[in-house]
Simulated scan of single mutants.
Amino acid sequence: MDASGWEDDTWILHDLTVPIDLADREKGPRRRRRWRDVTDADLAATSKAKGWPPNSMYLIRDLRWPDIEINEGIFGGESLTALLDVLGGFYGPDVACLAYYGMVPANEYERLTVLEGPLSAIGSLTLNEDLFRGLSPSNWWPADRSWFVWTDYDLTATRVSGSRALIEAVRSHPRLETLDWQWPEGSRTPADRRRVRG
């Protein structure tokens, strides 16, 4: 579920990884590469020109680096750890949070799937292959709704919404790669469309 209404937001690009040992590209260890290191494209300009959120389908078509791997709908690795550090710095690692899994990630089409726990437990949800196939929550937020995280199953970027101070801290974090993108003027966001249907 998408939502709006916060002071500011930005998109965090999901981690890209490449094999360390080219003789074992599929199962060998991998390391993170920066998006700006694998393409000559101006990512901000390319994203701004598109009518849908930042994702690998149009951001890294022309690659300078072989064997790039990125998982759609999974917000994890260094980027997740860095975001948890930022949020924990503002609100504390034990702030109570809710984590919602959409129907596809939860593989549950009859009822909503919502978990409750501390912010510090969010990372363990994505690392657990037995729980939701290792996919990250579609949304997570604190009880007071002071911030909101949205990961879509088909995207390779995650949106974080909150106060201006929080979003500036996300943008300036050295381990996060962010892009600012808004729904094009005159278009309806998914949240708007739900309200119309609702």
Rank of each mutant, 00 (worst) to 15 (best):
S187D: 15
R194L: 15
A191M: 12
P19I: 08
G73E: 03
P142F: 08
P174G: 14
I12Q: 03
P174D: 13
R36D: 13
W65K: 12
S124N: 01
G102H: 06
G89Q: 07
L166I: 01
R195H: 14
G76K: 00
P53R: 13
P19N: 11
E129N: 08
A96R: 12
A121Q: 10
A49W: 01
I68N: 02
F90Q: 05
L119A: 08
S187W: 15
Y91R: 10
F132V: 11
G51N: 15
Y101S: 02
L179N: 02
A165Y: 01
T189N: 09
Q182I: 04
R171A: 06
E168Y: 03
I20Q: 12
H173T: 11
D192S: 13
T10R: 01
L155V: 00
A143F: 07
L176A: 04
T156A: 01
D192R: 12
D130A: 09
P19M: 11
A44N: 04
S172P: 00
L176H: 06
V170Y: 08
R171W: 01
F75S: 02
G186I: 10
A165C: 00
P118K: 05
E78V: 10
P184L: 04
D9G: 14
R195Y: 12
I167S: 01
A44M: 05
T126Q: 06
V38N: 02
N55A: 01
G51I: 06
M1L: 14
W6H: 13
L176C: 04
W181M: 05
V160P: 04
D2F: 09
G88E: 10
G28I: 08
T156C: 03
M103L: 05
P118S: 09
L83A: 08
L112T: 10
Y101T: 03
P93Q: 08
L131K: 06
P190Q: 08
V38H: 03
G117T: 07
G186M: 11
D192K: 10
L16K: 02
W181R: 05
G162C: 07
S56N: 07
P190W: 10
D40A: 11
R64L: 13
G186K: 05
F148M: 06
T189C: 06
E110W: 07
T17R: 09
L13V: 04
G28F: 06
D144I: 00
L112R: 12
E116V: 08
L179I: 13
T156D: 05
D154S: 13
Y91C: 05
I70E: 07
D180N: 09
L155C: 10
G162K: 08
G123P: 05
P29S: 05
L16P: 08
T39N: 04
I70S: 04
K48R: 15
A165P: 00
K48W: 10
D85N: 13
G89R: 06
G5Y: 11
W11D: 01
I74C: 06
L155W: 11
R145Y: 13
F132M: 14
C97N: 04
A157E: 02
P190L: 14
G5I: 09
D144Y: 03
W181H: 08
D62K: 14
S56M: 12
M57F: 14
S124I: 00
D130C: 01
T113Y: 06
G89K: 07
R32K: 13
R164K: 14
D2Q: 12
M103E: 14
N55C: 12
P184N: 07
G28D: 10
G51S: 14
L131E: 07
N71R: 14
A165E: 15
D15F: 04
L59M: 03
D24A: 09
R197D: 15
S120V: 10
